[in-house]
Amino acid sequence: MKYWRRPLDKDKIKTPKGHIYIIPDRCKGCGFCIEFCPKGVLEESDEINRKGYHLPKIADGKEDDCMNCNFCMLICPELAIYTEEGE
């Protein structure tokens, strides 16, 4: 990112990073987390859970993009996905 004037606290402020977790057999494949993640981190995978639904996965090249905003957790109707602060 280019700054017009370098913020004094640039070294101290870090964009939050998230680590994603899933409880696979709760997912009903609605696609809400995939469609509405503001960073486009998730996509549908080929993997099928016990109920026969396709699970979300982390899209290629998006491994470090989750910002732990928690939106996927709130919108998931099945309490199947959430994030925690990552490294």
């Binding site: 680590h19 994603i20 899933i22 409880i23 993997e47 309490l79």
Partner: peptide, 12 residues
Amino acid sequence: KGRIETVEEHPL
């Protein structure tokens, strides 16, 4: 690759 880490419980 790309697989989300699997757990058994949700924070809520």
